[in-house]
Measured scan of single mutants.
Amino acid sequence: DTINITLPDGKTLTLTVTPEFTVKELAEEIARRLGLSPEDIKDTHNGKTLDPSLTLAEYGITPGSTITLEIK
C-alpha cells in the first residue's frame, strides 16, 4: 500500500507502508530518503501534527492518503 508525502517544495514522494507503521517509522523512512534527520521532520494530516507513537491506522491514514511534510 502506498501513501503520498507532500514535500515543502510541492513535490510528492510516494512511500510503501502498512497501516501498522508508526508515525515515527514513517518519519525515519522519509528522513532516510531525503537525507535528513528524523527529528527534523514534522508530519501533518488534515491540519493536525501527528504523534510519533501512534500508527497510521490510528489516524485513519489509508492507501492513497496524503501527508504533508514540514521541515523543523
Rank of each mutant, 00 (worst) to 15 (best):
D1N: 13
D1M: 14
I3K: 00
I3Q: 00
N4S: 10
N4I: 08
N4G: 05
I5K: 00
I5H: 01
I5N: 01
I5V: 13
T6P: 02
T6G: 07
T6K: 14
T6V: 15
L7W: 06
P8F: 06
P8R: 08
D9Q: 04
D9N: 12
G10L: 03
G10P: 00
K11M: 11
K11H: 11
K11I: 12
L13M: 12
L13N: 01
L13D: 02
T14I: 13
T14A: 09
T14M: 10
L15D: 00
T16P: 11
V17G: 01
T18D: 05
P19M: 08
P19Q: 07
E20G: 08
F21N: 05
T22W: 01
K24H: 09
K24P: 00
K24I: 05
E25S: 05
E25F: 04
L26Q: 00
L26T: 01
L26I: 04
E28V: 07
E28M: 10
E28A: 08
E29K: 04
E29L: 10
E29W: 11
E29D: 05
E29Y: 10
I30E: 00
I30F: 03
I30N: 00
A31M: 06
R33M: 12
R33L: 11
L34P: 00
G35W: 03
G35S: 06
G35F: 05
G35D: 08
L36H: 06
L36P: 00
S37P: 11
S37N: 13
S37E: 12
P38S: 08
P38H: 08
P38E: 06
D40V: 14
D40I: 11
I41Q: 02
I41D: 01
K42L: 15
D43Q: 15
D43E: 15
D43C: 15
T44I: 13
T44F: 12
T44S: 13
H45W: 15
H45Y: 14
H45F: 15
H45Q: 10
H45D: 11
N46C: 12
G47R: 01
K48Q: 15
T49Y: 15
T49R: 08
P52M: 14
P52H: 11
S53K: 09
S53A: 11
T55I: 02
T55A: 04
L56K: 00
L56H: 00
E58Q: 07
Y59L: 15
Y59H: 09
G60A: 03
G60H: 03
G60L: 03
G60T: 02
G60C: 04
G60R: 01
I61A: 03
I61M: 05
I61E: 00
I61N: 01
I61Y: 10
I61K: 01
P63A: 12
G64V: 02
G64F: 03
S65Y: 06
T66H: 09
T66W: 08
I67N: 01
I67R: 00
I67G: 01
T68Y: 14
L69M: 08
L69W: 05
E70P: 05
E70D: 09
I71M: 09
I71S: 06
K72I: 13
